[in-house]
Design a protein around this nucleic acid. Structure first.
Length: 463
RNA sequence: UCCCCGGUAGCUCAGCAGGUAGAGCGGGUGGCUGUUAACCACUUGGUCGGCAGUUCGAGUCUGUCCCGGGGAGCCA
C-alpha cells in the first residue's frame, strides 16, 4: 500500500514524476470531452489534488463515472502542470481503483457548506471537511510545540493520575469513579460503604494535576503535565467541556514574575510555531472563520500582553462609562462582561491580571505581604476569556494550613501536600492552560465543541 | 442551573393574519462544457421534534417534555 501524501506532492510539485495517491473524493465533474475531474483529499493537508480520469481507463464506464463525494480511491499516474485555474498541478491517472464506495443517497456530507451544529451530530465524518481537518492538524501541531517548548527549557514531562482520591481541590464538580453496581450500592447505615468499593474509599476523575505536579516540581525542579481533565459542572456554554486537555507547568525556585514570563514566552512560542509551520491551515481560518486571527497572533508576538493588577482593573472598570450588569467593587470577582470590556475595548489585546483578593482565589495561592491579596495571575484574551490561571504557591506551612481551614477543607486530606512545606519547602509557581480555549483563540472558532474531536458536554457522550 | 432564540425534505431555510406544505442545494435521468461550490432541463423527496389541548379545521394558537443555538453563572 505504498502511497505519496498529497502534502508532499503539492509542496514539491515534481511534474513528470509518477505517483500513487489514496484519499477520499471531494467532488467529481465530468467532461463529455471524454474524461472526468476527480478531486481527492487525504487529510495530509488542506488542499485537494485534481485527478484527470480519461474515458480510456478500463473501468471508466462502470466505476469512475459513479464515483461520488465520500468514496475512497487509489490512483496512480504522472503529475502534470494543470492548464486550468485553481491548481498548479494535476495527476493524469493511468489507473483508478475504488477502495470504498459511499452511497450518495445516505452519505451526509455534501460539497456544500454545512452548519457546525449539523457536523457535530456526525462527529465520525466531520474530520473529512476542510474546517475539521484543519483543526485536527492545528491541534496536533500545537501539541508538538507545547512539548518542544518545555523540553527545550529542560522541563520534565510528568504524568499525573487520571483517577484521584483527592475529594476536593476546589475546582468544580467531580466525576465519581466506582465499580459499584449502582442498583445495589453497599451501605453502612445511611452512608455509602466505600470500604467495599474498588479503592476502599471515594475516588474521582482528576480536575487538575497541579497538586501532584507540585510534588515533582519540589524534586525535579521544572515539570509540566499535558493531559485530560474532567469537570462535572453543568455548564452549557461555548467555552466549557466536561473533558478537556490542560497544560500545567510547575517550577521550583520561581515566583509570580517568573511564572508570568513563562506564560508569555510559552504563548509566543506556540503562536510563532503556528504562523511558521501551519501557513495553509491558518490562512484558511483567517479567510473563512475569523479574518483577524493571523493579525491577532502577530500582534501578540510583537507587543506581548498588557499587565495590570486586579486593583488597577477595578479602578478602570469603576471609571468606565459603560453600565455593567454586575457591580464593580474591590473584592468581587470579575464577571465576563468586565473581562471582555478590559480585553476587547480598553486594551484590545490579551491582558494579564495579577494580585487578586484572597477570598476569591483558591487556598494554595501565596498570600501577599498586604494579607489581602494573593500572588495570582489570570491571562485573558479577547473573545475566549480566561485561558490561563496561575499563581505562586503558598510555601509557608502555617499559612497554608490556615488557608486550607479557611476554605472549609480538611487538612488531613492534604497531609502530603502540607508535608512539601514541612520538608525543604521552596518558592514555586505554575499555571494551568486550557488547551481547547487556546485552540479557539488561534483558530477563531467560536464553539469549544468544534476544536476537540469528540466533545463531552452535559447530556452528550456520543461517539 | 437561569434568561433569550430555534426545531418544516438528506442539508440550508421560507411558509406573512389558523384552511392538510415550498425554494435552493444534494440525489436520480438527460444535455453541455479543461471542469473547479460548474452550468441547463426534467425528476425524486416530508407522520412540519414528541405528547396533550383549543378549533369544523393546527406547520401556524396554548401547555408540557425532549433536543439544538446564543448569553449568564462556574471555571481552563
Amino acid at each position: 500500500m505504498k502511497r505519496t501524501r498529497l502534502a508532499d506532492i503539492l509542496s514539491s510539485k515534481k511534474v513528470g514524476d509518477h505517483f500513487v495517491v489514496m484519499g477520499w473524493v471531494r467532488t467529481r465533474r465530468d467532461s463529455k470531452g471524454g474524461f472526468s475531474f476527480i478531486e481527492i483529499n487525504d487529510g495530509s493537508c488542506l488542499k485537494n489534488l485534481q485527478i484527470i480520469a480519461d474515458k480510456r481507463l478500463s473501468n471508466y464506464g462502470d466505476e469512475i463515472v459513479k464515483i461520488q463525494t465520500g468514496c475512497s480511491i487509489r490512483a496512480s499516474g504522472a503529475l502534470f502542470h494543470s492548464p486550468g485555474k485553481g491548481q498548479d498541478v494535476e495527476l493524469h491517472a493511468e489507473e483508478i481503483q475504488v477502495l470504498g464506495w459511499a452511497d450518495p443517497d445516505t452519505y451526509p456530507l455534501q460539497k456544500k457548506r454545512h452548519s457546525f451544529e449539523f457536523l457535530r451530530s456526525i462527529a465520525h465524518l466531520r474530520p473529512r471537511t476542510n474546517t475539521f481537518g484543519a483543526v485536527a492538524r492545528i491541534r496536533s501541531a500545537m501539541s508538538l510545540a507545547i512539548h518542544t517548548f518545555f523540553q527545550e527549557r529542560r522541563f520534565f514531562y510528568l504524568h499525573t493520575p487520571i483517577i484521584t482520591g483527592n475529594d476536593c481541590e476546589g475546582a468544580g464538580e467531580l466525576f465519581k469513579v466506582t465499580t459499584f453496581d449502582l442498583g445495589h450500592v453497599p451501605r453502612d447505615g445511611e452512608d455509602v460503604d466505600f470500604k467495599k468499593d474498588f479503592f476502599g474509599r471515594p475516588a474521582n476523575l482528576t480536575v487538575s494535576g497541579q497538586l501532584e505536579a507540585e510534588v515533582y516540581a519540589m524534586a525535579l525542579g521544572d515539570v509540566y503535565t499535558f493531559g485530560p481533565t474532567f469537570r462535572a459542572e453543568n455548564s452549557n456554554t461555548s467555552r466549557h467541556l466536561a473533558e478537556f486537555w490542560m497544560v500545567e507547568p510547575e517550577m521550583a525556585f520561581c515566583d509570580l514574575e517568573g511564572d508570568i514570563e513563562l506564560a508569555e514566552s510559552f504563548l509566543k512560542y506556540i503562536f510563532a510555531h503556528l504562523l511558521e509551520n501551519c501557513h495553509e491551515d491558518m490562512a484558511f481560518f483567517n479567510r473563512f472563520i475569523d479574518s483577524t486571527v493571523i493579525e491577532t497572533l502577530e500582534g501578540v508576538l510583537s507587543k506581548g500582553f498588557e499587565r495590570l493588577t486586579y486593583t488597577e482593573a477595578i479602578e478602570i472598570l469603576a471609571k468606565a462609562e459603560r453600565k455593567f450588569q454586575f457591580p464593580v467593587a474591590w473584592g468581587n470577582d470579575l464577571q465576563s462582561e468586565h473581562e471582555r470590556y478590559l480585553c476587547e475595548e480598553v486594551f484590545q489585546r490579551p491582558i494579564i491580571l495579577v494580585d487578586y483578593p484572597r477570598q476569591i482565589k483558591p487556598f494554595y495561592m501565596k498570600l501577599n505581604g498586604d494579607q489581602k491579596t494573593v500572588r495570582a495571575m489570570d491571562l485573558l484574551v479577547p473573545r475566549v476569556g480566561e485561558i490561563i490561571g496561575g499563581s505562586q504557591r503558598e510555601d509557608d506551612y502555617e499559612t497554608l494550613l490556615t488557608r486550607i481551614r479557611e476554605a472549609g477543607l480538611n487538612p488531613d486530606d492534604y497531609w502530603w501536600y502540607l508535608e512539601l512545606r514541612k520538608f525543604g519547602t521552596a518558592p514555586h509557581a505554575g499555571f494551568g492552560l486550557g488547551f481547547e480555549r487556546l485552540i479557539q483563540f488561534v483558530t477563531g472558532l467560536s464553539n469549544i465543541r468544534d476544536v476537540i474531536p469528540f466533545p463531552r458536554t452535559p447530556g452528550n457522550v456520543s461517539f
